[in-house]
């Protein structure tokens, strides 16, 4: 049986009658880095706030670690929601000490270890308000890591960072997943960055979860292919296999075939199909990158 860190069931939220989250069924498996993708206002932060207990859903429910005793399970999650939430007049150590006291962590060594993990060991007596945005984001991640949570929910953790900052945070997230075995739900606009680390994706558009897809399925969906629309798909498949010796293909629906890998030029396929009496409506070479794939999903276009 598959273990889930988070499952939502028809989660719906409306503000003053306006639905911002519409019947969302999200599934985050344990051990995944789940990229949560959507445009501004799509409902990502609303969903994350509901999971964190900051908002109450209008309808639907959720389970954390397959339990509906949410307050108890929330002790097993760490969150960053929207902006870094820090005490500006406290140093990095003092901020972490507050969190340690809150979560009953009495071992002071944890603070040094966490600062080391996020690369803030040398901040000394510098107050958090004097930190750069990247440092604040990293300190927020350290705060979220206090208490050794199994599941991290990071809402836009690389927002506003420079390329070096983005790389640092991205590497940190990958390290937390691979070395410390944390399940991570990360919402982000930078699709290219997300694609480098995520093992699973959820795409949300106008409050609706459009698609959930694993990294391997995404790779499959985005690889170069020849997309052929025909009037007789069974006959076309037979010709591809037996006459042109193409085996790496897939019937997408009742009139569309995708051919992957090294395929011959489209003109020869077209002539073979036509000579066998198969009507060819179109042949298009598809070469979609990850960003284009997600943007299509976010804009409500289908991805065959």
């Amino acid at each position: 049986m598959m273990d889930f860190a988070l499952k939502t069931f028809g989660l719906t939220k409306s503000f003053s009658g306006k639905i911002v989250l519409d019947n969302v069924n999200l599934n985050v498996r344990k051990g995944d880095i789940y990229g949560f993708i959507g445009k501004n206002g799509a409902g990502k932060t609303t969903l994350i706030k509901i999971v964190a207990g900051l908002l109450k859903p209008t309808a639907g429910s959720l389970e954390l670690f397959s339990s509906s005793d949410l307050n108890k399970q929330r002790t097993r999650i760490g969150t960053i929601i929207e902006n870094p939430s820090l005490y500006p007049n406290f140093t990095a150590k003092e901020n972490l000490r507050v969190q340690c006291k809150l979560l009953g962590v009495s071992d002071e060594k944890v603070i040094d270890k966490l600062l080391d993990i996020v690369g803030l060991s040398d901040t000394g007596r510098k107050k958090a308000k004097k930190f750069s945005l990247g440092m604040k984001q990293r300190l927020s991640i350290a705060m979220a890591l206090v208490g050794d949570p199994e599941f991290l929910i990071l809402d836009e953790p690389i927002n506003g960072l420079d390329p070096t900052g983005i790389k640092d945070v991205r590497d940190l997230i990958a390290k937390l997943n691979s070395e410390y075995n944390k399940t991570i739900l990360i919402s982000c606009h930078l699709l290219g960055e997300l694609a480098k680390i995520a093992s699973c994706y959820g795409v949300i558009n106008e409050g609706k979860l459009v698609k959930e897809i694993t990294a391997s399925e995404l790779e499959e969906a985005c690889k170069e292919c020849l997309c052929i629309k025909v009037d007789n798909i069974e006959k076309a498949c037979d010709i591809l296999e037996n006459k042109i010796n193409i085996t790496n293909y897939e019937s997408i629906n009742e009139d569309t075939i995708n051919i992957y890998g090294d395929f011959p030029n489209s003109a020869s396929i077209n002539s073979e199909l036509l000579s066998a009496g198969v009507g060819v409506n179109s042949i298009i070479k598809k070469d979609k990158d990850v960003e284009a794939y997600f943007i299509d999903l976010m804009e409500g276009k289908t991805n065959d």
Partner: peptide, 14 residues
Amino acid sequence: SWQTIKNIVSRGFS
């Protein structure tokens, strides 16, 4: 104002 209340609520405290 600093939104640090989120750090407390999200950790499951009633």
